[in-house]
């Protein structure tokens, strides 16, 4: 068993355990911390697949940006009576059955196709380049072939920023009228 396999199984166990803990914790702050754990595991998977730049983006944007935003909002809206609240909705058993059914069908399709993913034409262990090489390749593709989507993504972020500000702005009724 090579080091890659050991790392994969450790990271997979970390990701699945942390994600299950994320959706079952009663306290939202604990759920957020377990989600951070899951995201770190996914960053490890990216490193394992030779996507160093993506791993860096994952840590900086997800863990550094999105999760801090989540924690801020938790501090703003979380009530004190969280301990006595019901965690799951009334529809939990039908919802669980439906989700497992849908994902069971998905798993059947995936498990049917997995054999064909590993045909010998596909090189399985890609040579993991140095960090500069991977970043360089991603940058070259991103700024040549995907230049228009890249610019559209910046417009999307601008619209999202403006929308978030407009929606969460406090409206002072006294000064308006």
């Amino acid at each position: 068993m090579t080091l890659d396999s050991v790392l994969f199984y450790v990271l997979a166990a970390l990701i699945l355990a942390s994600s299950i803990l994320t959706i079952t914790r009663r306290n939202v702050v604990y759920a957020a911390v377990w989600l951070v754990n899951t995201l770190v595991g996914v960053a490890g998977i990216f490193l394992l697949r030779g996507a160093e730049f993506l791993a860096g983006v994952q840590v900086i944007v997800y863990i550094g940006g999105i999760m801090v935003l989540f924690l801020f909002v938790i501090m703003l809206v979380s009530g004190h009576d969280e301990a006595v609240q019901r965690r799951f909705s009334n529809q939990k058993w039908p919802a669980l059955a439906g989700a497992v059914a849908v994902c069971g069908m998905l798993s059947v399709i995936v498990l049917r196709g997995v054999g064909s993913l590993d045909h010998p034409g596909m090189p399985e262990a890609p040579p993991i380049g140095s960090i500069t090489e991977n970043s360089q390749q991603v940058g070259q593709v991103l700024f040549s072939q995907y230049l228009l989507p890249f610019e559209l993504a910046s417009i999307l972020l601008l619209v999202a920023i403006i929308g978030a500000i407009v929606m969460s702005k406090t409206r002072n009724r006294a000064t308006e009228s």
């Binding site: 919802a95 669980l96 994902c103 798993s107």
Partner: peptide, 16 residues
Amino acid sequence: LLVGVVGILTRRNILV
């Protein structure tokens, strides 16, 4: 993905 779908269908808290 299965864990995510189960979470989104069964939890009540919008943050989760």
